[in-house]
Simulated scan of single mutants.
Amino acid sequence: MILGQFKQALCLYVGCLLGSTALHAEECDPAKFLVRDTIHSVTDLRTKIAYVNSMSSQKNDEKNANFANDVYSEFGISNMKVDAATKTSDLLSKLLKVDLSQSDQRWLLVSAIPAGNIDAYKTCISQQKKAIVVTVDKNAAISQAFVLNVSYVAYHPVAAPKVQIKIIVTNGGIDHNNVVSGSYLGEFVAGSSDIYRVVRADMYKPMSIAIKVDTDVLDPQISIPALPSVKIEKFTVSSTPPFAWRLHDTNADFGPKEICAAIPDNQQEAGILPNSTRVVFDERLTDRGVVYDCGQEGQACPDKSSHREVGDRQACVSVWGHLSATTGLSQAKGHVEATALKAVSIPIANPAAPNSTTSLPSEKKKRH
Results as ranks from 00 to 15, higher is better:
361 P>S: 15
209 I>S: 00
183 S>A: 03
19 G>I: 02
88 T>C: 09
129 K>H: 10
198 V>C: 06
46 R>W: 13
121 Y>A: 01
201 A>H: 12
160 A>N: 14
140 A>R: 05
61 D>R: 07
334 G>M: 05
245 W>R: 11
100 L>I: 02
335 H>T: 07
337 E>Y: 00
335 H>F: 11
108 L>D: 04
40 H>Y: 13
314 Q>L: 01
200 R>Y: 04
158 V>T: 14
188 F>H: 05
26 E>H: 07
223 S>W: 00
1 M>C: 14
289 G>W: 07
361 P>A: 15
45 L>Y: 12
78 S>V: 14
82 V>H: 09
69 N>F: 12
312 D>T: 12
238 S>K: 15
35 V>F: 13
29 D>T: 01
61 D>C: 09
286 T>H: 06
334 G>E: 15
303 D>E: 12
260 C>G: 02
363 E>L: 13
285 L>N: 14
70 D>N: 11
295 G>D: 02
293 D>S: 08
262 A>D: 00
220 P>E: 03
75 F>I: 06
242 P>K: 13
162 K>S: 13
265 D>I: 11
178 N>I: 13
329 L>D: 15
278 R>F: 04
62 E>F: 07
43 T>P: 01
120 A>K: 14
126 S>T: 10
282 D>P: 00
141 A>H: 06
311 G>L: 02
18 L>A: 11
180 V>W: 02
359 S>Y: 00
270 A>L: 10
154 A>P: 12
307 H>M: 14
55 M>F: 06
290 V>K: 10
301 C>T: 11
92 L>R: 02
302 P>T: 08
321 G>A: 11
333 K>L: 10
364 K>G: 14
150 V>H: 01
249 D>N: 15
267 Q>W: 10
170 T>D: 14
305 S>R: 10
177 N>W: 00
168 I>P: 00
71 V>E: 00
212 K>P: 05
278 R>A: 10
24 H>T: 12
39 I>S: 04
8 Q>C: 04
331 Q>L: 08
162 K>V: 07
220 P>D: 02
209 I>L: 08
84 A>Q: 09
16 C>D: 14
325 A>L: 05
147 V>F: 06
342 K>S: 06
18 L>W: 01
58 Q>K: 06
275 N>G: 03
169 V>Y: 01
15 G>D: 00
136 V>S: 01
328 G>M: 02
31 A>E: 07
340 A>C: 04
181 S>G: 02
342 K>H: 09
217 V>I: 15
201 A>C: 06
274 P>Y: 07
165 I>N: 05
79 N>G: 01
73 S>D: 03
68 A>N: 08
255 G>V: 03
142 I>F: 04
132 I>M: 14
282 D>S: 11
195 I>C: 01
176 H>F: 09
